[in-house]
């Protein structure tokens, strides 16, 4: 597999040189150099560092999840507010008749009340009947009333 384009001639020359007896002898000597072994202390130190790194990554991942979900909720809330608040604040065409309707209702109720008062005064029982009722509900006994209480 050729990764970079290279001069074919140079490659052939290099290959033949590299396969010479002397070159192979050196290769063999280098290959037989002793393997370097690492201590258990080194390995346990590495394990600690990797464990700390794994814990750090886990925390980062957890924080990222919390933040992204919070951000998502925040964004959703903000969008909702942006949609809802202007609609609530804006006076709509339907809102005005509603207030007129309530005024009409109020005034009609008031008119009805006045009419009933007038009718009550004109009819047979009249104002006197109502006043009598008031006296009936007072704390005074039947014998204890005087004329000043009427007027």
């Amino acid at each position: 597999m050729a990764i970079w384009p290279s001069d074919k001639k140079e490659q052939v020359i290099s290959d033949s040189k590299l396969e010479s007896t002397q070159q192979q002898a050196i290769a063999s000597l280098v290959k037989k150099l002793p393997e370097e072994n690492l201590s258990m202390a080194w390995r346990s130190s590495l394990n600690e560092r990797i464990r700390a790194e794994a814990e750090k990554k886990r925390k980062q991942r957890r924080t990222r999840i919390v933040w992204s979900s919070s951000l998502g909720f925040g964004m959703a809330g903000a969008i909702l507010l942006m949609v809802m608040v202007p609609n609530a604040m804006r006076p709509t065409s339907e809102a005005i008749p509603t207030s007129n309707k309530s005024e009409v209702l109020e005034s009609s109720l008031y008119a009805l009340h006045q009419e009933s008062v007038v009718l009550g005064g004109v009819s047979s029982t009249g104002v006197a009947y109502r006043r009598t009722q008031e006296f009936d509900n007072s704390d005074l006994g039947e014998d204890e009333w005087n004329s000043s209480q009427i007027y």
Partner: peptide, 18 residues
């Protein structure tokens, strides 16, 4: 590195060691 450079360096290195 280019392939040719790898071979050249290997040859040089072995020759130095030799």
């Amino acid at each position: 590195l280019p392939l040719g450079t790898v071979k050249s360096r290997l040859f040089l290195a072995r020759t130095h060691v030799q």
